[in-house]
Simulated scan of single mutants.
Amino acid sequence: MDELFDAVLFDRDGTLIRDVPYNGDPDRVSPMPGAREVLRDLRARGLRTGVVSNQSGIGRGLVTEAQVTAVNARVEELLGPFGTWQICPHHPDEGCACRKPAPGLVLAACEALDVRPGRVVVVGDIGADVEAAQAAGAVPVLVPTAVTRRDEVDSAPRTAPDLRAAIEMIL
Rank of each mutant, 00 (worst) to 15 (best):
L78W: 08
D2M: 11
E37A: 14
V139W: 12
E3I: 00
L113F: 02
D27F: 01
D11M: 08
L62E: 15
P21I: 06
R18I: 10
H91P: 05
D19Q: 13
E168I: 02
A160Q: 09
I17F: 04
L39C: 14
R99K: 05
D25T: 10
S155I: 00
R60M: 14
N23I: 03
G95H: 05
W85P: 01
R36P: 05
D151K: 08
M32N: 06
T49S: 02
V29T: 13
A160Y: 12
P117K: 04
H90M: 02
V20N: 06
D27A: 15
A136T: 10
G127M: 13
A66E: 15
G137K: 10
L105H: 04
G95M: 10
C110P: 10
A44N: 15
L62T: 14
C96L: 05
D125G: 05
L16F: 10
H90E: 01
D154I: 08
L105S: 08
I170T: 11
A73Y: 00
A166E: 07
V121R: 01
G80T: 06
N72W: 03
M32E: 15
A108V: 03
R36N: 04
F82Y: 15
M1K: 10
L105P: 07
K100N: 06
M169V: 01
L42P: 11
V68C: 06
T148R: 08
E111A: 12
F5T: 11
T159L: 04
L78V: 07
G104M: 04
A102I: 00
L42N: 10
P31M: 13
A108L: 09
V122A: 12
A165S: 15
T148S: 15
G14V: 13
R40W: 07
V143W: 00
A112W: 03
P21V: 07
G57S: 13
I167M: 13
Q55S: 04
D19N: 15
E111I: 00
G59K: 08
R99E: 01
A166M: 11
I17G: 02
L163S: 07
V8W: 11
V20L: 12
G95F: 08
H91V: 09
K100Y: 02
L16H: 12
R74G: 09
